[in-house]
Design a protein around this nucleic acid. Sequence first.
DNA 1: GGGTTGACCACGA
DNA 2: ATCGTGGCCAACC
Length: 115
Amino acid sequence: MVESFSQRVYDVVRRIPEGKVATYGQVAALAGAPRSARFVGFALHSNPEPGVIPCHRVVFRDGSLAPGFAFGGPEVQRELLENEGVVFVPPSESAGEAAGADGWRVDLRRCQWDA
DNA sequence: GGGTTGACCACGA
DNA sequence: ATCGTGGCCAACC
């Protein structure tokens, strides 16, 4: 009756409050696998319950979103997060445009989920 | 049933 | 400071 790691990941992601974002590593750690951040992305890619699991609230350690992300468009994701109160910062505000999602990154300093 | 890959992160040089 | 490799777990072929 051990719940699969992926199942636990979904549970953690589901707990992420609105206006907050969690990193894959953080979700992985909360799921019980601090070194399995990779699988977290896999589990979310599986997205067994679309609409229930806010995968868009899960971002990279850098604060950038996953490349190849497909909710309908990366720009949609930015709007979704902004709509929830997540603060985005342009690459100009931060040295390093080598980030995904048009270079827009989430301000983890303010919006990273504090479990 | 076994091998490989995968929305990553941390450490070593 | 940056670049490269390892590691973790599970699903896919």
